[in-house]
């Protein structure tokens, strides 16, 4: 349940592009054609799924305050969290290189389809953003971090796919000249972001969730009452 909630939350409610504007540069630059957008989106899913869990491990066992206790009691009050930027970005850069080498060796087809996008991803804000939000939201377990990386990647993929499809269509429309290209893309993204805000009510945490549960429980009770009523009516019909 926890996993399912995080999954939908990262795809729709906290969508990387529409809620936090991460990875906007490549989102705007590589969304002219659907086919290239799919390639980049797939690469982002892949790299996020790999780097967020690794950075979670780094955060838990090296960076956080008191994380070094596994080395010995005298390390208990070290707080290395100021190093997190440099460590995260180093992990991302090396992982991207590694992934590139491994993919090239074992799956040339995938390598060719991801093409130039893999190395570019090291500087995609969405990747570092994934790790930084993972850190600031204090995700609890390794599995949840894996889930978070994967589902944020899917959210980004969906966003770039949608805008690429719209941009392919909009080529045939009569857009005011100064808005052509970048301007209209910005405005469309804004409108899409407004649309995505409606997902905000899909999952509400804390008190609201508890309230909803009690509400739905009350509804279930009502439904049961109705059912018994209709059943009684049916029975009385039959006896008549």
């Amino acid at each position: 349940m926890e996993h399912l909630e995080l999954f939908f939350k990262s795809i729709f409610v906290d969508n990387m592009v529409f809620a936090t504007f991460l990875g906007m540069c490549s989102y705007l630059a590589v969304s002219k054609k659907v086919s290239t957008a799919v390639g980049l989106g797939a690469a982002v899913i892949f790299v996020l799924t790999v780097t967020v869990p690794i950075n979670w491990l780094l955060d838990q066992y090296i960076l956080q305050e008191g994380a070094l206790t596994w080395l010995g009691a005298e390390y208990a009050d070290y707080d290395l969290s100021f190093l997190s930027f440099i460590l995260f970005i180093a992990t991302i850069a090396t992982m991207v290189q590694l992934v590139e080498i491994v993919v090239e060796r074992f799956s040339p087809a995938l390598y060719n389809s991801l093409g130039i996008f893999l190395p570019l991803i090291a500087v995609n804000c969405a990747i570092l953003g994934g790790s930084l939000f993972m850190q600031s939201r204090e995700i609890e377990s390794f599995a949840l971090a894996l889930n978070y990386g994967f589902s944020s990647g899917i959210g980004w993929f969906l966003a770039i796919l949608a805008i690429a499809a719209i941009r392919e269509k909009i080529r045939y429309s009569n857009v005011p000249a100064p808005l052509r290209g970048l301007g209209i893309t910005f405005i469309i993204t804004g409108l899409m972001a407004i649309g995505f805000m409606s997902f905000g009510g899909m999952l509400t945490g804390g008190d609201d969730a508890a309230k909803e549960e009690s509400d739905s429980a009350a509804q279930v009770e009502k439904v049961i009452e109705k059912e018994t009523e209709t059943a009684q009516a049916a029975v009385s019909d039959k006896t008549e």
């Binding site: 100064p178 808005l179 209209i184 804004g190």
Partner: peptide, 16 residues
């Protein structure tokens, strides 16, 4: 958040 995008879109419009 979405209004930031739209404001930038308008700035681009004016500039161009």
């Amino acid at each position: 958040a979405p209004m930031a995008l739209i404001v930038v879109g308008i700035i681009i419009w004016v500039q161009r």
